[in-house]
Amino acid sequence: MTTNLPTPGLRDVPTAETPMTRKDFASDQEVRWCPGCGDYIILAAVQGFLPTLGLRKENIVFVSGIGCSSRFPYYLETYGMHSIHGRAPAIATGLATARPDLSVWVVTGDGDALSIGGNHLIHALRRNVNLTILLFNNRIYGLTKGQYSPTSEPGKITKSTPMGSVDRPFNPVSLALGAEATFVARTLDSDRAHLTEVLQAAASHRGTSLVEIYQNCPIFNDGAFDVLKDKEQAEARLVRLEHGKPVRIGEREWIHDAHADDPSRAFEISRLDDGTMAHVPIGIFRQVERPTYDDQVRSQLTSAAATQGEGDLDALIAGSDTWTVSHAPS
């Protein structure tokens, strides 16, 4: 995978003086996901990968919503906030705008990001705030014990859909591309090398990066992605996207261009999966440069101070129409 664009997502974040290890990023909290949950693998990958960024860990913040995946921040020895259902992108937007010296991450799930928090997600992507969003997609509600989610397949039988779900699911990658997100990728909890590589590119992207991670929930939706994990089937089903490299599906072959300004081609690729998982693209769909919301907000502050001078509180409060009473009332 190539990530040659000069997208310095971490440009303003101070770097650590001494190298750190995975242990430095493990908090003292006991991890409480179910045995075999895909979240463990993702946590291990993130803990293993964070030291390679070389950042001061006090300048890293993980913000999450509600759901199994949203417990993530508790297990990392960085600053963190476990917030409320669906709102993490909004909270992170405020934090990232106020603090350019932080590396801000959002950890969310399919219910958190696409159902209750759908609005905040699309607006964060549209604004292109400098955030990295990890969307753990297990296609089920885990924490509330097994209701269908906005990514569950039609007809799914769950506790709340005994006769099968009649909802049409979102494709998170299509949704993000529809919102013209500047960085959109998909990876799998089971492929640590690929996961790490995608995370690396997402973190270094300046703007909102959305990484969909297929995550297995062995308790309520076990094996949802097995066909992509089984060695023999995976080769036929997975469509590996690498910028500038050829992609082949049957007769069709093309050179993947993740840097195209127009998101239409990336969207078309996202539609290769018709829901049957016959062809599932993974890798970076789109990675383009666009001014970020937070950079532009801060540059307006700087230019206002530069052109009008620093704020003078007395002058502000007085305004232009004052009068003075110089004699005390008789």
Partner: peptide
Amino acid sequence: EDEIAGIGAALGASFG
């Protein structure tokens, strides 16, 4: 984008 995001962002900024 909405009232909820307004206060959410303000709280995020307070955290920072």
